[in-house]
């Protein structure tokens, strides 16, 4: 774990390639490996699983999430 990140931007830089949970404003969760993101918080993820109310609903090999829907991005210790 890199506990040295100081700013949100540092955090976002540090988590590329890591397993993450992305929560959207709708409450839906996406778990997968963060490929990259941009300044709008648009996100590209790999091996993504979609959880609605905690239940697995879908899997995507690659997926793009439009940034305006993102509530938070959180790192996972493991999948």
């Amino acid at each position: 774990m890199s506990g040295t990140a100081k700013t949100p931007a540092d955090f976002l830089k540090a988590i590329r390639g890591r397993p993450v949970v992305v929560k959207l404003n709708s409450g839906v969760d996406y778990r997968g490996v963060l490929a990259c993101l941009d300044g709008y918080m648009n996100i590209a993820m790999e091996q993504t699983e979609e959880y609605v109310n905690g239940q697995l609903k879908n899997k995507y090999g690659d997926c793009f999430i439009r940034g305006n829907n993102v509530l938070y991005i959180s790192t996972q210790k493991s999948q």
Binding site: L24, Y30, Y60, G61, D62, F64, I65, R66, N69
Partner: peptide, 13 residues
């Protein structure tokens, strides 16, 4: 229109 888009998934590459 893009503002309604939540997620886009391409075919498996």
């Amino acid at each position: 229109r893009g503002d309604g888009v939540i997620l886009v998934s391409p075919p498996l590459r």
